[in-house]
Design a protein around this nucleic acid. Structure first.
Lengths: 218, 218
DNA sequence: TTTATTTTTTAGCCTAGCCTAAAAATTTAA
DNA sequence: TTAAATTTTTAGGCTAGGCTAAAAAATAAA
């Protein structure tokens, strides 16, 4: 139904829209797709004809209901495959993205249905991101950024905002992964840095880090 | 390194060459690829430049060592994924081909290494076809066509020559699958048909069927 | 509010992989 | 061994998805 390129554009627009909810600009899309704005214009016009998004010249694009369905289906597949790679094939969570990027385009509803069951109907991928159900609905979570916690508060790491290999490897070095309990020992006002407790160790982390990590408080 | 289309051509030429060992004709390739001969000429010339095959105008194509490596790698991936689909996701052996046809193009050596291990390093796919190892070597089997067996001989079904859904479903109806023990009760000279024993039942099968089923004798 | 800057679109071109129609080479038949 | 039939290649076109360069629209600054 949709080509790989089309699916990737739709997915990118979905993610961009999730952040700002308004129409997504041509340049923003070009940025994340690593293409030129002129190429984006072409593709966006084609996708508008296919009814997966609404497009107004010079204004930007926003997904239709149909487009959202395509996007969540691709995201669902991506995240389920990531669970497979980590849980079944023992990949590390910072190695799976590129492979899942390929696997997310495999077309077979039956395959995904069975894969989901095989994995025990997981709700979250190895990075802590929610896996939408077959209808495209995400489980609501009340996760917040680590940077929002006050001194003395505790939280459980449930995800990352950024998932570059560099960042994930940094977290590894600090022994932080999904499920890790974190306690805020101290917080600096002027630069937003924190001292946190992870297991038996304590670490100093910058504001940048604290704003890239999601935790769930209880 | 190679596009999906290129990999599919290489794979097709490999299979054609396995049957006749000589140079493969343009028309033969067009046939299995379901394209026009002119398209094949284009692609074959491109693949010759890429050194995966030797091509002589009007004579045909034959894979180089490099081409054989590409082909066996794709075949290895295809068959390993089929094992995954049947063993882990409980697909039926006649449902997995189209999905494996997509999965065989996923690029990641590490993925295949781990998948192979996860599946217990299988030697055969669900249709009984051998899975080449990482170096492209096939395990030798002395399978023969059922039609070659004489009256009274026994064999174990180890594969099929043809794997259309229709044929596989026919085998199902007769309760024949990989590992099924078959005994030849009788054989007609004039049309090559047979009466065979499968489990507690006996069946009449035509020459066409007997020539589409591989068995291993002991 | 006019000018300068930035963003977006248009126009035209490129490659991969397909196609059709016509030409050329090979094979088969007379 | 020449003519007919078949196979294969060439030539020229098409679509998807990119690109650059230039034009047009929108936004920001003077």
């Amino acid at each position: 139904m949709f080509t790989y390129a089309e699916e990737n554009y739709i997915k990118a627009i979905f993610h961009l829209q999730a952040q700002s909810d308004k129409e997504v600009s041509t340049n923003a899309i070009a940025d994340v797709m690593e293409t030129k704005p002129s190429s984006v214009t072409d593709m966006v016009q084609k996708l508008a004809e296919k009814k997966v998004l609404a497009y107004r010249k010079y204004k930007g694009a926003s997904l239709t209901e149909q487009g959202r369905k395509v996007a969540t289906s691709v995201i669902r597949k991506h995240r389920l495959w990531e669970v497979f790679l980590v849980d079944k094939l023992n990949f590390h969570w910072d190695e799976v993205h590129d492979i899942a990027e390929q696997l997310e385009h495999i077309q077979s509803d039956e395959l995904i249905k069975r894969l989901d069951k095989f994995l025990g109907n997981p709700d979250f991928d190895p990075h802590g991101d929610p896996i939408p159900d077959a209808n495209g609905n995400f489980k609501k979570t009340e996760k917040k950024l680590l940077s929002k916690l006050k001194k003395g508060q505790r939280g459980v790491c449930v995800g990352v905002k950024e998932s570059s290999p560099e960042f994930l490897q940094f977290l590894d070095k600090k022994n932080i992964s999904i499920g890790t309990k974190i306690k805020v020992l101290g917080k600096e006002f002027f630069d937003g840095s924190m001292v946190i407790e992870v297991g038996k160790n304590q670490s100093f982390i910058s504001k940048k880090i604290a704003e890239s990590l999601y935790v769930q408080t209880n």
